[in-house]
Design a protein around this nucleic acid. Structure first.
Lengths: 210, 210
DNA sequence: TTAAAAATACCTGTAAACTAGTAGAAATAC
DNA sequence: GTATTTCTACTAGTTTACAGGTATTTTTAA
């Protein structure tokens, strides 16, 4: 058995959850919670100057998107393993987390026992997904759940379309030609695999783009 | 100062939150956590045979709707005060909770300090809503969040519109005139207070009609 | 600095959506 | 059984959306 305890950082904007984690994991002598944060920027400030093994990351933070945080961590600090933690069991978010380097994913109804097991398994290089998450990931293989990559402008126009703003109005608002807006709309419809704006909006909401 | 500690019961399906609450409130010598539950049925079994002052209630439990639980508690045990606790800041749920007797409402990003203050205030017969919740309740007075009553046919057509089906296709499918479908679409747009199909779909999803 | 990606813009035509008003038949509620 | 709502359908005109292709400029990223 390794004498070194696993260095864990927890990020969650709910003090109660942080307290729960501190209290639960604090009893475990194989895991050391080196620090807790309530937002992403504090986390990154800490990662710059400290060595960490595992980050337990709440996907819904106030200042930054969970998927982006995960991507940034795994890109900058490839040795750090990320475990996603969330109340929601939204398949598209879970898949995006996995694609962006998350080694594990747990729902917040997890017991501290299971969390400890997950951290251990991930620390030795394996992945860990709770039963419910495994099922969600398995199901999502069959139905096409890919979230197409939209450009900044496309996302912007998508939001405006969902607000009921018409092409001429969007063009005026963004100070571009209505023909350009039409091009973006066409690309959005094509990328999302839909046939018109109504279905586009529905799909975008389903995939968490709005 | 009253020598009796305030008897609190906590209900939340997340063990980590329960642990956090136990740990935070355990340090406070004015509050006694007499029990914790992860579902509603265990809670009611306990309330039958024990005296409790305050119930801290997670609104999203697996076995029963939070609003119903709140209603049942305040009806059967009028001396017990309920504090709602939730991740979501959905105005309609908060309003329903208050209507059904909740004396306080907090988001899960609450600090343990604030939670203690809330429990005290509620215990002496006042109500407590965190700043964010107060704002939401205040805003919801002004903006119209009524869900318009749609007819059966309108709902049917609304769903088809959201699937990207066009008017001629809908007409064929329902074996009615496309002109009739157009009339329904017009009425949908008018009832929902929107300007086109894209916004209609977004609004319908927001209001839980799809 | 040089590919690649994104944002911009145009043309042409067709199809669909939206506006506005009216009105008879059918179902439902009181 | 009567009133009300819902479903049905129409006319007529305007605006917007969608299909398809092409092409230049401007950003990013490698």
């Amino acid at each position: 058995m390794n004498k070194e305890r696993i260095k864990v950082v927890v990020v969650d904007d709910h003090p109660l959850v942080l307290e729960g984690l501190r209290s639960s994991l604090g009893e475990d002598n194989t895991i050391q919670i080196v620090n807790c944060f309530e937002n992403a920027s504090d986390l990154f400030a800490f990662l710059k100057r400290s060595s960490v093994n595992v980050v337990v990351l709440d996907v819904n933070l106030p200042d930054m998107n969970g998927v982006e945080i995960c991507q940034k961590i795994t890109q900058k600090y490839s040795h750090i393993k990320v475990v996603g933690l969330s109340t929601y069991n939204d398949p598209s978010i879970i898949k995006q987390m996995v694609k962006n380097g998350a080694k594990g994913y747990l729902l917040k109804n997890v017991t501290s026992k299971e969390l400890v097991a997950a951290i251990h398994q991930i620390h030795i290089g394996q992945s860990y997904f709770s039963g419910e998450i495994q099922k969600i990931l398995a199901d999502s293989i069959f139905d096409n759940n890919e979230v197409p990559k939209l450009t900044r402008r496309e996302k912007e126009i998508l939001s405006l379309v969902a607000e009921g703003i018409t092409t001429p109005q969007i063009a005026k608002k963004l100070v571009i030609s209505p023909l350009t807006v039409e091009t973006h709309r066409r690309n959005l419809i094509q990328k999302m695999g839909v046939t018109n704006a109504a279905q586009l909006v529905k799909m975008a909401i389903e995939k968490g783009l709005i």
